[in-house]
Write a protein that binds this DNA or RNA. Structure first.
Lengths: 205, 205
DNA sequence: AAATCTCCCTAGCAAGTGCTTGGTAGGGTA
DNA sequence: TACCCTACCAAGCACTTGCTAGGGAGATTT
């Protein structure tokens, strides 16, 4: 019996390779032979380290989501107001894209299909958690007057969620634009819009 | 020799079925047997109507893109200003999602992989066309003072493109929210932002 | 020195993949 | 009557898929 323990560095190396290929070619299009080839071994040898192809995806997604929601919880616990919380959550999301682009890409493109498998039921739970988080931020913000009163909260949630995560398709961690810079630009559009402003005066002088 | 002509209504029926399955399960995960099963025939019988699985996807994407860019060209030819043009293009895109959700979903999720095949080189061309169109709208808008001067045009283009098309993942043509209503909500956020407004005065009184 | 562990190979299986072949039933047309 | 067309079936081919069984060389532990 082989170990399939999680301590090996070779194992981590293989998992990272798998993540890259899953992200590039898609989960179903990536064969275990592809992964083995990239590592310079034969496909059967992969099964010394992992139970199955599915378990590789599982491990990648679990690790990523645990880290992501950890950072979300820290932000929510800090109790900044709605606007600052929104900024922090969006920024943390872009930083996740920066740190783990492959995992985000896998989550973004494969979750829908993987969710149907019992093994990946936690993806559905995470989705609900995510929705709850954004609903709270937006509802609070509207109540406190930080966000527009006529916002369709559900629709706004979807727009924010989608636009943030879909950025993984073009964002380049090695590029000139940092994740924080992208987050800042995005928040500028999201909060203030792209239309040119007319002159402003404060409501309460 | 069979015809594979494009006039048959049965053919159109099969193509529509394939579109639905490609959109739901993904192109690679959908087998020709799946499509045949859905139509109540055997997999081999599909090849009386189509040359290959690939040609089904080709036909679906070509038809969709021709229609889409046709509507874009009409809008551009109308010569509305930047802001109205932006609104019209975004609205036309949401209407495309409404009319051809399966095709949009295929384009959205499979184009990246299909583009690598010589047969689908036109996808790359269409992408460039799309980018040019948005660059023109945004650059014009900034020049004319309709949009904020500090906009990163390239980044803004990506945000708009992604957020519009990714809506196909949750938009339901049979739902309560019409495509035009979604477009209006989205344009509200995009143009004016979600932050609550302070009192305004006109720049030129 | 013996035993164990790590990491990989050789070899292959069962299930499924897109696609091809030869054929047929029913209908229209000359 | 003779011919052709549409739309399908039955059978199967060449190949790919995830995964398994068993073994072996080298390092580490006992």
């Amino acid at each position: 019996m082989n170990t399939k323990g999680r301590g090996s560095s070779r194992r981590a190396e293989l998992l990272s390779l798998a993540a890259k290929l899953f992200a590039e070619r898609g989960y179903v299009s990536t064969t275990v032979r592809d992964i083995a080839d990239a590592a310079g071994i034969l496909s059967g040898s992969l099964y010394h380290h992992f139970d199955s192809k599915e378990s590789m995806a599982d491990e990648l997604l679990t690790g990523f989501l645990d880290e992501l929601f950890g950072s979300y919880q820290e932000i929510m616990a800090a109790g900044l107001g709605p606007r600052k919380t929104l900024e922090a959550v969006v920024t943390a999301s872009f930083e996740a894209i920066d740190r783990r682009p492959a995992e985000v890409a896998i989550y973004q493109t494969e979750a829908k299909h993987l969710m149907q498998l019992p093994r990946f039921a936690y993806l559905t739970e995470r989705n609900a958690e995510f929705r709850g988080l954004w609903n709270a931020i937006l509802t609070d913000g509207v109540a406190e007057g930080a966000f527009r009163a006529d916002l369709d909260v559900e629709l706004t949630y979807r727009f924010i969620r989608d636009t943030v995560w879909v950025a993984v398709r073009w964002y380049n961690p090695d590029g000139a634009l940092s994740a924080d810079a992208v987050a800042e630009q995005y928040l500028g559009i999201l909060l203030e819009g792209i239309a040119a402003k007319r002159k402003r005066v404060r409501k309460d002088p």
